[in-house]
Amino acid sequence: MHPRLLKTFLAVARSRNITRAAEAVHLAQSSVSDQIQSLEAELGAALFTRSKVGLELTPAGQALKPYAEEMLMLADEARAAVHATTGHTSGALAIGALETIASARLAPWLPGFQAGHPGVTVRMKVADSGTLLRQLEDGDIDVAFCFGRRDVTNGASDERLARRTIAAEPLVLVASAGQGTAPCDLAALAARPFVATEPGCIYRHLFDTAFAEAGVEAPRLAAEVGSIGAIARLVAAGAGLGLVPRLAVSDALARGELIEMPWPGPMQTAPLTMIWRRRRVQPPALRQLLAAAGDTLAPATSRGETGSGLESADHSKALFPNNS
């Protein structure tokens, strides 16, 4: 089974649609159909069947899927092992990030990384945290930068993924310039209207957790919106208060559109986390990027994949204690 056919098979399995799969693997629809037919002829079994919601895997397709994923991963690891023997760091990397992290942290940092690693080509994708994890699991990106959930960081995580918290980004209480003073305790603060993102978003999780950990019922929401940018605009217009990572509103604070109020309780932070797939051998280019990001992207007390501190000065070894 040629890896090209397996890659196309997995693209169809994930998208359940020939057109979307063709876009994902950069082929014509007819080529995707031909490759699936070739694979089915080689295996002597139909891999897909049509349903009302799209293409569905047959029992044979379901049996093939985990083997296809493993075979492609082994091919990547073999390629990485060979490249590691040459001593040269080169290759193409796809990184994914939340929009606020991409603009505030990665955009200023990436040019310096690429200048120091001219053989490495980096392209960046911006998406929400759920999409980033799916892209990581599907192999569409090599590493994701997002804010972590504490329950995941502390061990309730996918064993296929490795995580490292590289910074503790402060959460700030923001208001419009004419908002006045903040209440002196959390109970009084919770009586004020807030603007937050929608349920399921990592920013909403951070907002809800900040009040839940203090034993205070979450505030009434004046609005639920889809982005931090919308929160900043609504708060600046006086719709309510906001509790967001400082990096997401630093420009608005600098322009005077928002003001930062004191948080009447223990300081809240958002863990800025790198997530990547575990492999027996990591591509040298990815090893270099992870090590550089861990060193320079606002380093803080960090956790490795097992939750232990990274005390070693050799961050490459700390990130990959067992080539994972």
Rank of each mutant, 00 (worst) to 15 (best):
Ala21Asp: 07
Gly61Arg: 07
Leu110His: 05
Asp151Thr: 13
Asp34Leu: 14
Ser250Ala: 15
Ala63Pro: 00
Ala292Leu: 01
Leu297Glu: 08
Ser227Tyr: 04
Glu213Leu: 14
Glu159Ser: 15
Gly200Gln: 08
Thr121Asp: 10
Val225Asn: 02
Arg246Lys: 14
Pro262Glu: 11
Ala182Gln: 04
Ser227Ile: 06
Thr131Leu: 12
Ala13Ile: 04
Pro264Ala: 05
Gly256Ala: 12
Gln114Asp: 03
Met274His: 01
Lys52Ser: 13
Leu47Asp: 02
Ala285Phe: 09
Pro59Gly: 11
Leu64Arg: 04
Pro183Asp: 07
Asp138His: 13
Glu40Lys: 03
Asp128Ala: 12
Leu290Trp: 04
Ala292Arg: 01
Leu74Ser: 00
Arg150Ser: 08
Arg233Trp: 02
Asp76Leu: 15
Gly180Gln: 11
Arg105Pro: 00
Thr100Tyr: 01
Arg164Val: 12
Ala80His: 05
Ala182Val: 10
Ser38Cys: 00
Gly139Trp: 04
Val122Ile: 15
Pro59Leu: 05
Gly96His: 05
Ser103Met: 11
Ala222Cys: 08
Ala223Phe: 06
Ala218Asn: 13
Gly112Thr: 13
Gly294Cys: 11
Ala298Val: 12
Ala156Pro: 00
Phe113Gln: 07
Pro111Met: 08
Glu169Ala: 09
Thr269Asp: 04
Ala144Pro: 09
Phe147Gln: 03
